[in-house]
């Protein structure tokens, strides 16, 4: 479970103070597929960065899978990211100098897994996203959709509990976007909790619920589909 309570995040410069998140509270249960929407500058990406431990926050409490992350060191945050969170970025963020196999291998190496286990996880992840036959291609040799699938394989290879996606279809045409979203749904059905930031309301409708952010605060909740049984049984949605 991801549980944020009264989180605030402020960016300060010499002249300006920007409140990216204000008294932000959100709970996401295991197995959910949550879409986060909002206009540009509303705080969607800041939320994703804080949720994914890419940035720290100033006040509030954040429990990730039961662990209070507010007091963690940088190394401990890295370890949590590596073990519990998978990231999918709008620009895919594949390392251009490594082939697909080595790209998927990156987070596994940081976990210091042995070679055989890494190989098994990489091939499984690439098979899941349909890129097993392209594992030794360079990112530049793949289409945008294939690159995003490779990025999803990288995110999944570590068997994370949470998949955080930042505009995962933002750089794809509609056909490829649909394929990627199908894949995310398939992954969610396998039990992985997904939080997807998007500005596309059509895509957001395919999530279990939509969290709408305006000016760093949640302005609206909408549930589009019946929630997974586990979530419904817990009886907690949102703040």
């Amino acid at each position: 479970m991801l549980d944020m309570q009264h989180i605030s995040k402020v960016y300060r410069s010499d002249l300006v103070e920007t409140h990216a998140l204000r008294d932000f509270s959100l709970t996401v249960h295991a197995g959910e597929f949550v879409a986060v929407t909002g206009p540009s500058g509303s705080g969607k990406t800041t939320f994703l960065n804080v949720a994914g431990l890419l940035e720290t926050f100033h006040t509030g409490r954040y429990l990730l899978d039961g662990s209070d992350v507010s007091k963690l060191s940088d190394d401990e945050r890295s370890r949590l990211r590596n073990e519990k969170i998978g990231f999918i970025f709008q620009g895919f963020n594949l390392i251009p100098d490594l082939d697909i196999y080595d790209n998927v291998d990156v987070p596994l190496r940081y976990r210091r897994m042995n070679r055989a286990e890494r190989h098994e996880r990489i091939t499984s992840a690439l098979e899941l996203v349909g890129l097993a036959s392209r594992m030794h291609h360079m990112p530049s040799q793949l289409s945008g959709g294939q690159q995003q699938r490779a990025a999803i394989a990288r995110a999944l290879a570590g068997d994370p509990k949470f998949l955080l996606a930042d505009e995962p279809t933002g750089n794809l045409d509609s056909l490829m976007a649909r394929q990627v979203l199908d894949l995310l749904e398939q992954i969610n059905e396998m039990g992985t909790t997904i939080i997807m930031v998007t500005h596309d309301l059509e895509l957001a409708r395919r999530a279990h619920r939509n969290v709408h952010i305006v000016d760093g605060q949640i302005s609206d909740f909408r549930a589009y589909e019946p929630l997974p049984e586990a979530v419904a049984a817990a009886g907690t949605i949102g703040r």
Binding site: L54, D74, S78, N82, I95
Partner: peptide, 16 residues
């Protein structure tokens, strides 16, 4: 820069 950020995001520590 982006690649380093990505490596950090997927679990690299500073010393990595």
């Amino acid at each position: 820069t982006k690649q380093i950020g990505t490596r950090r995001a997927v679990g690299a520590r500073r010393r990595d």
